[in-house]
Amino acid sequence: MIEVEVKAKIDSFEEIENKLEKIGAQKSKKEFQEDIYFNSPVVDFAKTDEALRIRTTKENDKTNIFITYKGPKIDSASKTRKEIEMGIDDAEKCSQIFEEIGFKKVRTVRKNRQYYTYKNFEISLDDIEGLEPYMEIEIGLDDNEDYSDAQNKIFELFEKLGITDGFERTSYLELLEKLYK
Score class of each variant (00 low, 15 high):
135 M>W: 09
130 G>P: 09
135 M>A: 03
33 Q>M: 12
52 L>R: 00
27 K>C: 01
96 Q>S: 14
100 E>C: 15
117 T>K: 13
113 R>E: 04
71 G>Y: 08
143 D>R: 04
119 K>M: 11
97 I>H: 07
77 A>L: 12
108 T>M: 13
92 E>F: 08
125 L>I: 04
21 E>S: 15
35 D>W: 14
103 F>R: 04
31 E>L: 12
73 K>D: 10
78 S>H: 06
34 E>L: 12
104 K>T: 11
104 K>L: 09
26 Q>Y: 01
44 D>I: 07
94 C>H: 14
31 E>W: 04
97 I>T: 10
126 D>E: 03
53 R>Y: 05
75 D>Y: 06
90 D>N: 12
33 Q>R: 09
126 D>R: 04
50 E>K: 12
44 D>L: 09
64 N>H: 02
88 I>W: 00
45 F>E: 11
80 T>A: 10
136 E>S: 10
118 Y>D: 05
23 I>M: 05
27 K>P: 07
142 D>W: 09
43 V>I: 12
122 E>Q: 15
62 K>N: 05
74 I>S: 01
141 L>W: 00
112 N>F: 07
23 I>F: 07
134 Y>D: 12
42 V>W: 14
116 Y>M: 03
139 I>K: 07
136 E>A: 11
25 A>S: 05
141 L>G: 06
42 V>S: 11
55 R>K: 01
57 T>C: 00
107 R>T: 13
29 K>I: 06
125 L>N: 00
134 Y>G: 08
124 S>V: 09
125 L>C: 02
133 P>Y: 15
106 V>D: 05
88 I>P: 00
91 A>F: 08
120 N>S: 04
20 L>R: 10
32 F>D: 11
53 R>W: 04
111 K>N: 10
31 E>R: 08
78 S>A: 03
110 R>K: 15
